[in-house]
Amino acid sequence: MSPNGQPLRFAPTKEEIEALALEALGRLPPPFSDYLAHVVLFVEDFADAETLKDMGMDDPFGLTGLYSGRPVGQEAQTGDAPPTVHLYRRPLLDEWVETGVPLDALITHVVVHEIGHHFGLSDLDMHVLEDMVSS
């Protein structure tokens, strides 16, 4: 218990972030949901140094999520890895604290944005999809 008698509250774990992300993915409507069976979700504390370098970023807190893979409609090549969505826990938690946006809404926003890359959506299309998923 904390000094004020409240239960101690710890930052959400990778598993809790993953559960929120999977809930967001589960709310995606068809045809989006039909194409997500092979997308792999990873939750890590931070992007690795190589990823940050490839993104032209120095600050590991600047990247909350990343999609990697061929967009839907592009022909897969032999040896292609499955498409992936990486969520970066520590930057997400910092943004959560800084903005006051509910964590589930923030995770939904990042997941929809990254999945939007899988479908080649514009930013406007991603906002429309996010509104559908958040309703």
Rank of each mutant, 00 (worst) to 15 (best):
S2N: 10
P3R: 08
P3K: 06
N4Y: 00
G5L: 13
Q6A: 14
P7I: 06
P7W: 09
K14D: 14
E15N: 04
I17V: 15
A19L: 00
L20A: 00
A21H: 05
L22F: 01
E23P: 03
E23L: 14
A24Q: 06
A24I: 03
A24L: 07
L25W: 05
R27K: 14
R27I: 01
R27T: 01
P29Q: 10
P30M: 11
P30W: 07
P31E: 10
P31I: 04
F32E: 04
S33P: 05
S33C: 10
S33L: 10
L36N: 10
H38V: 11
L41A: 01
F42S: 00
V43K: 02
V43T: 01
F46N: 08
D48F: 02
A49N: 09
A49M: 12
E50Y: 00
T51V: 15
K53P: 00
K53F: 03
K53T: 05
K53I: 00
P60T: 10
G62C: 00
G62N: 03
G62I: 02
L63Y: 01
L63D: 01
L66Q: 15
L66T: 07
Y67P: 00
S68N: 00
G69C: 04
V72T: 03
G73I: 00
Q74L: 10
E75Y: 00
D80R: 15
A81P: 08
P82H: 09
P83Y: 07
P83F: 08
V85E: 05
H86L: 11
H86A: 12
L87T: 02
L87K: 02
L87M: 07
P91G: 11
L92K: 01
V97A: 12
T99V: 10
G100Q: 13
V101H: 00
L103G: 09
L103R: 14
L106P: 09
T108N: 06
T108D: 05
V110D: 04
V112S: 06
I115M: 14
I115P: 04
G116Q: 09
H117W: 05
H118L: 01
H118D: 02
F119D: 02
F119S: 02
G120W: 08
G120I: 07
L121G: 04
S122E: 13
M126R: 15
H127Y: 07
H127N: 15
L129R: 06
L129Q: 06
L129V: 13
E130L: 15
D131Y: 04
S134M: 15
S135R: 15
S135Y: 12
